[in-house]
């Protein structure tokens, strides 16, 4: 479904990705692990079209997307809930969700999805008229995920959805991500700090270090890898 082929990305002169290759198949949940500054967010931004690769290419469902502007990529169904939530603080929860559905014209389907996310996150339903800037961290993360869902993604990319959340709230988020994966049958590319959980739920995993993919295997296999255990699982 998604093929990232040997891309190199740089911020000005500083290279952040050096020949990264990664694939995600339809229906998979793939996780991308790596320490701070490894280049995970850079990869997601490049897939979304916010950054352009210097070399290499990206295709989605067989179509070259690395030269498309971000909004065209969203229209194709590649949507991300970015790191740090990035909700629109002065807009209400409802208007944030409405912006999630910006590319869609089918009002009925949008209404159905709105109902779906309100069922998924009852707290958002309660706060639908509240400004997003006044939400708690966990609520804002729920809104970021819900907003991405309203775009009706074929490939949903989540960038560190548990970042900075209290343990209990983090559990909620983990639970919801699994629920989305199962109920919506949406393909997911998950970037996560909590390697233990991510390796547990993902079918496949990539490990990124210093802008390079250093390992790639089934989630369960990597969980047993000694290097991974020492570096990411804290054994």
């Amino acid at each position: 479904m998604l093929k990232v082929d040997n891309i190199t990305v740089a911020y000005g002169k500083a290279k952040a990705l050096h020949g990264v290759t990664l694939t995600v198949e339809q229906g998979e949940m793939v996780t991308l692990l790596g320490s701070n500054g490894a280049g995970k967010s850079t990869l997601l931004k490049t897939i979304s079209g916010l950054l352009k690769p210097r070399q290499g290419g990206i295709s989605f469902l067989g179509q070259q997307i690395n030269n498309l502007p971000p909004h065209k990529i969203v229209e194709l169904g590649v949507v991300q809930a970015p790191e740090g939530r990035e909700v629109f603080p002065s807009l209400s929860v409802r208007d944030n969700l409405r912006m999630g559905a910006f590319t869609r014209r089918d009002e009925k389907a949008v209404a159905r999805d709105l109902q779906f996310v309100f069922d998924l996150f009852p707290r958002l339903a309660e706060r639908r008229d509240q400004a997003a800037g006044t939400l708690s961290g966990g609520e804002a993360q729920m809104l970021a995920i819900a907003r991405a869902l309203l775009a009706d993604p074929k490939l949903l990319m989540l960038d560190e959805p548990s970042l900075g959340l209290a343990p209990l709230v983090r559990e909620d988020i983990f639970h919801v991500v699994q629920q989305i994966y199962q109920e919506r049958r949406v393909t997911i590319l998950l970037v996560e700090q909590n390697a233990k959980w991510a390796l547990g739920v993902a079918s496949r995993a990539y490990i990124m270090e210093n802008g390079r993919i250093v390992m790639e295997d089934l989630g369960s296999k990597l969980a047993e890898n000694e290097h991974v255990q020492r570096a990411y699982l804290g054994y």
Binding site: L50, H71, V74, E75, P82, F88, M99, F102, T103, R147
Partner: peptide
């Protein structure tokens, strides 16, 4: 309010 997030919403 957030140029990047707007792009990520397909705006």
């Amino acid at each position: 309010q957030n140029r990047t997030a707007a792009q990520l919403m397909g705006i």
